[in-house]
Amino acid sequence: APSGSSLPAYFIKGSIIQLADGELKHVEDLKTEDFIQSAEISSELKIDSSTVERIDDSHTHNFAIVQFSVGEHRAQVSVEVQVEYPFFVFGQGWSSCCPDRTTQLLELPCTKLSVGDVCISLTLKNLR
């Protein structure tokens, strides 16, 4: 197995992912529809669109701060992630701040995450 990243094992190519309907797929084979359909089945989770507004990878080695505009209310959320952390972009697939590193460390096919990309994220269906 690839090593050198402390990201969770489920991002490594070949990892087996169970969709909400029970179907099993490899992480590298997931499609946008798999996430959408799984969220539709879920009683607690819903998919939100999170648009990348800013990527700052200038401060900390191997880390980046990604600023998103989340959901219909365009809430601003920033997350600090390792540059190889893969986000799933609608209609495109896995993308990271440093796709070369993602491919090297996780063997996960990946494209470059860019400002304007719309990522899949989750929120609770009822925030009460």
Binding site: P8, S121, T123
Partner: peptide, 19 residues
């Protein structure tokens, strides 16, 4: 072989409710 739930792969970005 471990099997992971689909939602593990998706970041949970919960905006703070302002109201």
């Amino acid at each position: 072989v471990p099997v992971f739930p689909w939602h593990s792969l998706v970041p949970f970005l919960a905006p703070t409710q302002s109201d």
